[in-house]
């Protein structure tokens, strides 16, 4: 079980949250300008890193806000959380 540090509600059991996959994958501003390979990279390819991993979570059963969690995927240790406003 992970204790997810919701920036608005505090730490809560992961049961209350929805996992939203890797963070920092911005949607291309002009998809039509991309090659099929570039589009596929955006669409499907993931770093899937073993170690520090920035990822999206939504406090579905709470404030319903999306935010970013940094977690070590090898140990599940949570290293921090940030809101979209604050994130770089």
């Amino acid at each position: 079980m992970l204790l997810i540090p919701c920036p608005w509600c505090g730490p809560r059991e992961d049961d209350e949250f929805t996992f939203g996959g890797e963070a920092d994958i911005p949607r291309p501003t002009d998809p039509d300008a991309l090659t099929d390979e570039e589009w596929a990279d955006y669409l499907f390819m993931r770093d899937n890193r073993r170690g520090r991993h920035r990822e999206q979570w939504c406090h579905t059963a709470g404030c319903r806000r999306w935010f970013i969690v940094e977690r070590d995927t090898a140990t599940n240790q949570i290293l921090g959380a940030s809101t979209y406003d604050a994130s770089p």
Partner: peptide
Amino acid sequence: AWLEQWLQTEWP
């Protein structure tokens, strides 16, 4: 959930 995700994470 899908709409909220786009709205909050991509198009705030």
